[in-house]
Structure formats: C-alpha cells, structure tokens
Design a protein around this nucleic acid. Structure first.
Length: 860
RNA sequence: GCCGGGAUGGCGGAAUUGGUAGACGCACACGACUCAAAAUCGUGCGGAGCAAUCCAUUGAGAGUUCGAUUCUCUCUCCCGGCACCA
C-alpha cells in the first residue's frame, strides 16, 4: 500500500468535482469565506500565492464540516493595469490574454485541492458582470450626500430644493450641471494627478514606488510626474466619518484598522475667520493645534490656492508674486508626496485683521501650505516648527504665549531662540483668563473661549481625498456617459447597458494622455466618455455578485443578499488596507443607503496572510531566480504536503522564507498517517501505565484523553487562524498513536479514534484522508462529514505532573491526582528525596500552590 | 518625525488572566536494519561533566514579584504604515 500522492490527488479532485461536493446550497446556517479577488497575471503562481487560499480553504472546509452552508467562491479581477500591461508586452488582445491566464491560473488552483464552488465564478471583464459595475457608477452619478440625513439620496431630491431658489431657474443647463457636479457622488473634475508619460496613464498613489531619481510606476519603473487632467472622481470623503466609525466593531487585525484610521485622518479643530484689510475678502483658516492661538503673528496661503489671484488684486507686484508662487508649485510637483521639504515663500502685500485682536497680521505665500487640506490658509505662530522656521527665514515677528514647564528650556523659548510646540508640557500666558493653565488641559476651555466670542467655530477635517475614478486606458469598464456638443452630460439608459468596449486597432496608450477610445470614430461621434474605470472598480462590489452570480435582472437578488448578508471571513494581503478595503466599504455603504444591501459593513472578519519569500530571503521573483512553482512541489511531494507545510511553517500572518529542507517534515507526517491505517483495529486498547508525553509536562491516562484534547485544540486553533499549532498538535497525537502501537504492546488504534483524527486532519490534507476514509469502508465523502466534538469528560487527565520548586527553582517533579487539594500535594511532595534534600536545615516560610501546575516552597 | 508591530537554540517557530522556557518540525550526531546506500525506526541535541550534579538563558539595562518571554520604565535594532495634514 504505497502512498501514491499523484494518483490519489487526481482521483479525489475528479470525484469531488463530479459529485459537486462543494456546491453552495441556498439554505441552512450560512457562512461566507472569501479570498481577495486575484489578478490572473499570466506568469503563473509561485508558492506564496496560494498561502492565503490554503488558509481560507482550511477554514471553509472546517466551517462546512461544522454544518454551515458555506459560500467559498473564486473569480478574477482581470481589468486594470497588470492585465493590460501583460497584454501589451505579449502583443495580444487583453481579453484573449485574460482568458489564457485564467486557464493557467485555474489549472494551478485545481491541483491544490481548494474547495471552491466554481459554478459561482465571476470575471470583471465579462460584460455580464461589468454591466452592473456601470450600473452602480450611474447610481453614484445620480446621487448626492445628504448631510442632515447622513446618507446618500437621489440628486433629484437636491434639484427639487434648488428649484425653490429664484436664481436656479435663471441658470443655463450648463450652469446647472456645473452646480450639481459639486454634489454628485461621481463627479467630473480637474486635478493634479500622477501622470506617467511612458505608460500614457494616470496612476493611483499605491501604483507608484520610489525610484532613485524620484517617483516611478510600480509596473515597469517609469518616471511619474504631476499633471493637471480631466478626471472622474468618487466622493468617498462624504463617507469619511462612517468609514471611520464603522471600523470599531470589526473583527479585523488591529494594524489594518489603524492604517485605515490614519488614512482617513480625522482631525478636529477650529476655523477662524478673518477680514483681509483693504478688501472685501474674508479668509478662513483651519487649526487643530489652536491652544496657542494667541501667539499667531502671520498667515500663510498655499501657492496654488484658488483665492490667491483675487487676494492679490490691486497689489503692485501682483504678477511677480503669482510667478513666484507658480515656481514654488512647479518645484514641489517634481517631488513625490512628502519629499519636498524646502521652506520658501513670498509676501503678498496683504494683511489680515486678527480676529483675536492682535492687529494687522501679514499674509505670506508659503511652500508648506497645502491647498487641499483644511482651508488652504494657515494662521501661524512661534509654537509650530515650520511656522517658526519660516518666520526666522523671512524675519517675521514672533510672539510667545506658551511657556515650557521645563525650566531649562524657558530662557531660549522666551528669547525666541528655539521653537517650543509641545502643548502637553507648556503653560499659557494668553488669553489672560486662561493664564497659567497647561495648554493641552485647557483645550476645551479655549474652544469655549473663542467660539463663545465668535472668533472661531469648531470644524472637523480629513486627510482622505476623493478617489480618482478614471484611467486613460483601453482595458477597463467604459464609463456609461455621453457628452453632447454643448458639453451637457447624459447618462446611458439602463437598458442599453452594458456599454461594451469597442474593438480597436490599437489598444496601446496614445501617449497624449487620451485613452485609445478617443481614437475610435464611432465612439467619439456618439460623444461617449473616453476615460475608462480604474482597476479597483469591479473589485469594489464582487463579494455581492458571488451571492447571486448569474442574475441578469439585478446585480444580485435581494433575497440572496438578505440570506448571505456579508462576508464572515475575508482573507487577503495587508497591502489592500487603504485601497480595495476602503473602496469596497464605501460602495457597500452607498448601496446600503440605496437600500440595496442589508449591512453597513461588508467584511465582518478579516485575516491577512503573510508572504512567502525566497530561500535567499528576497521576494520571490523571476528577476532573482528564486521562484518556487507550486506545480513542482505538488508533483514531488503532493498537494496535501504543500498544504500542510504552508500552514505549518509559521504563523499565518507572518512573512517567512520557503525552505526546501523543512517541507520534508510535512511529507513525513502525511506518510506516517498513511502507514498508521494498517494499525487500525477494533480491539479496545487502554495503556496500563500513564505514559510520558515526550516531556511535555502532562501525563495522559490513555490515548483517548490526548485525542479529545487534540480535537479541542485543533478546533480552537483553526477558529483563530493558528494553523501552525493545529498541525503541531496533530503531530503530537500521531507520535502518541504510533508509540502506543509499538511492537511491545501489539495493540492497534481504535478505528473510531483514528477516524476522528482523519476528520480533523481533513481540512489540511483532504486527499489522503479521503482515500483512507474510503479504505476503512466508508461510502460517504469525508469532506462532507461532521466535525468531531471534543468530549470534555474524556479530555480530562486523571493525573498531572507538577513542578516542585524550592525558592522558585525547579528541584523535582511529581505526579499527582488531577485537582488534588493543596494539603494532599504538600504531603506527597515532602516525601520526595530531592525535596527533603533541598529543604534540609531550612524553615518553610511560605507555600505557593498553583493547581495542576506547580508547588513552590519559600524556605530560608 | 509620527503611528503600529516585533526581537526566544544552528534554523522555522511554541508557550502570556505572571506559574516547569524551548512544544512541533528541520538540520546535525550516534545507534538499529542493510553487502552497501536511500528510506524507515530508536536515542541525543543551551553549556560543562562518564555521572550525580552545576551553571546560563527569551535584544540590552533596571524595577515589581515567591516566581517575569509575559507587567512597568529606559535604551538598541528590525519590519509595516503615514509623512510639509497646520
């Protein structure tokens, strides 16, 4: 009975497939286990890719055996840059390339023995799918965010309100369109974007990496510069607060929540209004660190602030200031975000009347002021590092109102030699009413002080920006909008969806910035939008399509949505923390507002799989020649071994190097289980003596105790994604099963016990366990068997080994009845020769007894 | 700079309401089987010692405690995220 992994695995994969063992049902207690939508990249998988799939598969199988109706689907996100880039490199049509890649990809996944319900496969590039992506886009376009109701509403509701205004009727169609564009959740606008001239496309921040000479595209490593372009945007910022508060109840890794929190960047502060002297302009400034606001002595405005030209009207050297501001913007745009640290500026010639009564304060243009954060204008003081440095450079007067509690610093701060900005460690001198108070502690009082006097109002701002939702490329969902000659935008009617991508002669980027669609006469003649959607469009809602993947009438039937509700367990890479995960949550919340889905948060639990890196410690890549192909591993060791090894190598979320040596351990484990089947007997077997569990500190009364303990451990571990310790506890069980069938005892393993072992091992090694299950005479499929329950009574030891310590040093060990009271244990232990020896001539001062763990004599 | 996570044998790692550190696996050494090798099985594997035994020990240093990988403080290094965010 040799273990022929190739034959066994092929055989069972075919049987499971034929019997539709993993077909999702439509009733019962539901459980939704989802993997992040992959790109079928074409170069094939390396052993790192399936790690997440194996983890989620173990989990899905576990839940299935626990009696849940499990939805565990797989599909492809084949739109977007990687697929298009691959197609360009290989000179074939993207769709053709996608289908080829999917074939390769699927073939590789099948060999691993993953329990997907392939009948629910979806593909973003399939018009039957992207029809609904376009449909959701139109819904976003037709909606605005009603702040009072804190939810999205049809834009028609807003139009109704506007129609009550006298000036609305007087507006032209174009003016109305422009006005409404300020509210739509999908809107057209212009913005500075990351432009890659060589790829001829705009890139998202997460598609850019740092190169030696500035930012470059992640794919290809081509230079990236800033460029102003016409774009479509999604108003994700409208949902900023809900995206933030929604994180609270989620069973997600804390670090991912933290990353999203920082990304959203909620900041509560004050907005001050100030009149600009000699003009009718009133400017506003945002400040989150306003405790020392009485120190403010000047204002700065962003060089690219839209108000700047107006502010400079009537200033003699207006053109010179505008030119210098433009220079600053140009210099800044050459750098990637955050790399430009130069502090420079120019005086505008204007003054503000300080709302706090400190007279006329100069307004400067400053390089460090950002037009798109806060109000783009900042009130500046001596108690901010950048403001301080700026003032020193241009000799702007400073004022000190925050005195450090640390006396050694005081002199330098008061004489303005150094900047002091730590609100938590300084006391205020102004306003007089709050003099002597710690600045941070007085924060609330300052808010009351300035707001009650109408100097400022409370305001919340976010770092998060609206998402660019357009690419100047061919391979994406067409945006279902038309522009007529007057520039009026019309939506395509729902019945004309999907708006299919046209066949084109060249799907290469034009390089001028326009999409290849701009070169399609028919397309342009109809006035169709030439931008396409970005790569993340289709993946922002696919988890809903899996609930009802074939539906032709709606994106997913409400009944299916009500049943499946949300993803119970989502598994994927941590790199999607601020991209996909945020966008999906946003789309889901929007659909929730439209009453189309039933939960505010789509992903209840999330787990991140770590990477598998090369044996050389580098990221697996063709470039380093360190790629391990799973097909090879499966050929040599088997899919079961690959699965067990990837789960056993270390913590699921950890990043670990592949080891060609270590995998043999997992193979040996599989083979030993295989060989153990010949030892199965129905003879009742009980050890006569408690055996030593390989010095693991506990004593098992018999194998049954260990078996039930192992069932409990494996159940808990899979639930916690602690797959490595689940495997190791089964290795311990195997060791003991083998030991108990040694030649001396001539005993077999009880069939019933062995079968329970097979069941808990099945999610990890489904093929081999299924084969043994059949050999044992079963006609049913093991993968559909019930998960065993650990019997609490049976999992209980009768005797336990405890440590005996004298003055906290272990001097002996002792086997005592489980749950024995202290007096009994003390009496037992004192008999031990080692204890007598160590206690000789000493007086016991104290005895500490930890039940079933240790006893410690404190003796002098 | 700010935020988050981490550092345990030759290696991957295990153990935290504070309770025998090093489970499990790999590598290595020795033994059994074999003409031999592989595979398999057995034993050992922090250091010293034939042994009894002794000593050290969870990045470094201090503290709390009968007892610290686990809690507190200081520091070093590594990884991830954000970064002119007012």
């Amino acid at each position: 009975m040799d273990y022929d992994h190739l034959a066994i695995e092929k055989k069972w994969q075919a049987i499971w497939n034929k019997k539709k063992a993993y077909k999702t049902k439509n009733s019962g207690k539901k459980y939704y286990v989802l993997d992040m939508f992959p790109y079928p990249s074409g170069v094939g998988l390396h052993v790192g890719h399936p790690k997440g799939y194996i983890g989620s598969d173990v989990y899905a199988r576990f839940k299935r055996m626990q009696g849940y109706n499990v939805l565990h689907p797989m599909g492809y996100d084949a739109f977007g840059l990687p697929a298009e880039q691959y197609a360009l490199e290989h000179h074939i049509h993207p769709r053709k390339a996608v289908l080829e890649n999917v074939k390769t990809f699927e073939g590789q996944l099948h060999k691993i023995g993953l329990s997907f319900d392939w009948d629910r496969k979806v593909d973003t590039t399939d018009p039957a799918y992207y029809k609904w992506t376009q449909w959701i886009f139109l819904k976003l376009y037709e909606s605005y965010y009603n702040k009072e109701k804190d939810k999205a509403e049809p834009i028609s509701e807003l139009v109704k309100k506007f129609e009550k205004r006298a000036d609305w009727k007087a507006k032209t169609a174009k003016e109305k369109q422009d006005e409404l564009m300020k509210y739509r959740l999908a809107y057209e606008g212009y913005s500075e974007v990351n432009w890659c001239p060589i790829l001829g496309t705009v890139l998202a921040n997460d598609e850019i990496v740092d190169g030696p000479k500035g930012p470059v595209s992640e794919r290809g490593g081509y230079p990236v510069v800033k460029k102003e372009m016409r774009q479509w945007f999604l108003r994700i910022t409208a949902y900023a607060d809900r995206l933030l508060t929604g994180l609270e109840g989620l069973n997600w890794p804390e670090n991912i929540k933290e990353i999203q929190k920082n990304w959203i960047g909620k900041s509560e502060g004050l907005i001050f209004s100030a009149k600009v002297k000699d003009t009718d302009i009133t400017i506003e400034t945002f400040s989150a660190h306003f405790e020392a606001c009485y120190a403010d002595t000047f204002f700065v405005i962003a060089p690219d602030h839209p108000l700047l030209p107006e502010l400079l009207d009537g200033i003699p050297n207006r053109e010179e200031i505008l030119r210098k501001s433009k220079e600053i913007v140009d210099r800044r745009s050459k750098f990637a975000d955050g790399e430009y640290k130069e502090i420079e500026g120019v005086f505008t010639g204007r003054y503000c009347i300080d709302p706090l009564g400190n007279g006329n304060l100069p307004i400067w243009v400053a390089s460090f002021a950002l037009a798109n954060y806060g109000t783009g204008i900042v009130k500046c003081s001596a108690h901010d590092e950048r403001d301080f440095a700026f003032a020193k450079k241009y000799n702007i007067p400073l004022k000190v109102v925050l005195i450090p509690e640390d006396e050694s610093l005081r002199g330098d701060v008061i004489s303005k030699k150094v900047c002091f900005s730590d609100m938590t460690k300084g006391t205020l001198t102004e306003p007089i009413e709050l003099k002597g108070r710690n600045a941070r502690e007085a924060r609330g009082d300052i808010i009351r002080y300035v707001t009650s006097r109408k100097y400022a109002r409370v305001h919340t701002t976010y770092k998060m920006r609206d998402a660019v939702f357009a690419r100047q490329r061919y391979w994406g969902e067409p945006i279902p909008l038309m522009h007529d000659k007057e520039g009026i935008i019309k939506e395509l009617p729902e019945k004309s969806l999907p708006l299919r991508l046209p066949e084109v002669k060249s799907y290469m980027p034009t390089g001028t910035g326009e999409s290849p669609l701009a070169g399609v006469k028919q397309w342009v003649k109809k006035g169709l939008e030439t931008n396409t959607m970005p790569g993340w469009a289709g993946s922002s809602w696919y988890f809903l399509r899996y609930m009802d993947p074939k539906n032709k009438k709606v994106f997913a039937d409400k009944k299916a949505i009500k049943y499946w509700k949300d993803v119970d367990m989502y598994v994927g890479g941590a790199e999607h923390a601020t991209g996909h995960l945020l966008y999906s949550r946003f789309w889901n919340k929007f659909l929730m507002d439209l009453n189309l889905v039933v939960t505010e948060e789509p992903f209840k639990a999330l787990r991140n799989q770590g990477m598998i890196i090369g044996t050389d410690g580098r990221r697996m890549s063709k470039r380093w020649g360190n790629v391990i192909n799973p097909d090879e591993v499966i050929k040599n060791y088997g899919a079961d071994t690959l699965r067990v090894y990837e789960m056993f190598m270390g913590p699921f979320e950890g990043s670990l190097p592949w080891s060609t040596d270590n995998i043999i351990g997992s193979r040996r484990f599989i083979e030993r289980v295989w060989r153990l089947q010949s030892k199965v007997s129905n003879k009742q077997r009980m050890s006569k003596v408690p055996f030593d569990m390989r010095k693991t500190a506990k004593v098992s009364q018999n194998l049954e105790v260990l078996l039930h303990k192992t069932i409990k451990k494996v159940t808990d571990d899979i639930q916690n994604f602690a797959f490595n310790t689940a495997v190791s506890s089964m290795m311990i069980l195997l060791n003991e099963m083998e030991a108990s069938t040694g030649s001396a005892q001539e005993n077999g393993i009880r069939k019933k016990d062995f079968e329970m072992f097979l069941k808990i091992l099945n999610p990890f090694a489904p093929h081999m366990t299924e084969e043994i299950w059949k050999t044992l005479g079963h006609k049913t499929l093991l993968v559909l068997e019930k998960w065993p329950k650990a019997d609490k009574k049976k999992a209980r030891e009768v005797h336990v080994k405890i440590a005996v310590q004298i003055n906290s040093k272990v001097r002996a060990e002792c086997i005592v009845p489980a749950g024995a009271p202290e007096e009994e244990v003390v009496a037992l232990v004192k008999e031990l020769p080692d204890v007598e020896k160590w206690l000789l001539g000493k007086e016991i001062k104290r005895v500490i007894y930890v039940k079933e763990k240790l006893i410690n004599f404190v003796a002098i």
